[in-house]
Simulated assay, not measured.
Amino acid sequence: MAFWQLTRLRVIYPVLLFLILFVDGTFMSSMGGLFTQFPWHILPTLTLGWLFLGVQFDVENELPLWFYIVVIGILFDMYYTGIFGTYTFAFIAAVAVMKQLHKVLDERLVSGLLLYLAGLLIYLLISYVSGFVTGIANVSMLSFLLYEVLPTVILNLVFAAASYYPVWSLFQFLR
C-alpha cells in the first residue's frame, strides 16, 4: 500500500467522524419535532454508526480507532450533555462489543446490521442507566424499550443499511 493511500484514510476517517458528530446534533435539532413527538423519542446516532462502519471495515488496522473513540466520546459529552463520561463510556463499551462480535460475524450486510444492533443496544442501555442514576431519566424500562429503543433501532438500522455499501466503496477507494 502506498503512503498516500494510508494517509488518505488516516485523514478522511477522523475528519468525517468529527463532522458527523455535529451533523448528529444538527439532524436531531432540525428534525426534533418529528423525532420527539409524544410518546416517541427517537435518537439518530450517526456518530455511533460511523464508528460501527469503522469496526466493520477494519480501519483499526490503519489508524488509532480507540483514540478517536475516546476523543469523540469526550467531545460528545462536552458538546451535548455536559456530564463527563456517560457517552465516552457508552461509545467505548458499544465499540468493544462490536469488535468482539466482529470476530465471529463476517462482513455481509445482515451480519453487519446485527453487529450494529448489539452496539446500539449497549449504547442506549448505558445512556439510560446513567440518566436513571443521575436522575435525568425517570421513565420505566418498558416505556424506554417501547418508545425510545425500538424506534431508535429502526431508524438507525435503516441509516446503516443505506450507508453500508457506499461507505464500503469509499473505504475501498481510500485504501
Rank of each mutant, 00 (worst) to 15 (best):
A2P: 11
W4F: 12
Q5K: 13
T7A: 15
R8C: 08
R10D: 13
I12K: 00
P14R: 10
L16E: 02
F18A: 11
I20E: 03
L21M: 09
L21K: 06
V23K: 05
F27K: 06
S29P: 00
S30Y: 15
S30A: 06
G33I: 02
G33A: 01
L34S: 09
P39Q: 07
P39F: 04
W40M: 12
I42Y: 03
P44V: 08
T45W: 09
F52H: 04
L53T: 05
L53F: 10
G54N: 01
V55K: 03
Q56M: 13
V59T: 14
E60P: 04
E60K: 12
E62H: 14
E62M: 08
E62I: 12
L65K: 05
Y68N: 04
V70M: 08
V70K: 02
G73L: 08
M78H: 13
Y79G: 00
Y80V: 10
T81Q: 08
T81S: 15
I83Y: 15
F84R: 03
F84T: 10
G85V: 08
G85P: 10
G85H: 09
Y87Q: 09
T88G: 03
F91L: 15
M98P: 04
K99V: 15
L101T: 12
H102T: 12
H102I: 10
H102S: 13
D106H: 13
E107W: 05
E107F: 09
L109Y: 05
V110Y: 09
V110I: 14
S111I: 01
L113E: 01
L113K: 02
L114N: 11
L117D: 07
G119W: 07
L121I: 10
L121A: 05
Y123A: 01
Y123I: 07
L124E: 10
L124F: 04
S127A: 14
Y128H: 04
G131E: 08
F132Q: 14
A137M: 12
N138K: 12
V139N: 12
V139I: 15
S143A: 13
F144V: 09
L145M: 14
L146G: 04
E148P: 00
P151G: 07
L155M: 12
V158A: 01
A160L: 05
A161E: 04
A161T: 07
A162I: 03
S163F: 02
Y164C: 00
Y165E: 11
P166W: 03
L170I: 09
F171L: 10
L174F: 09
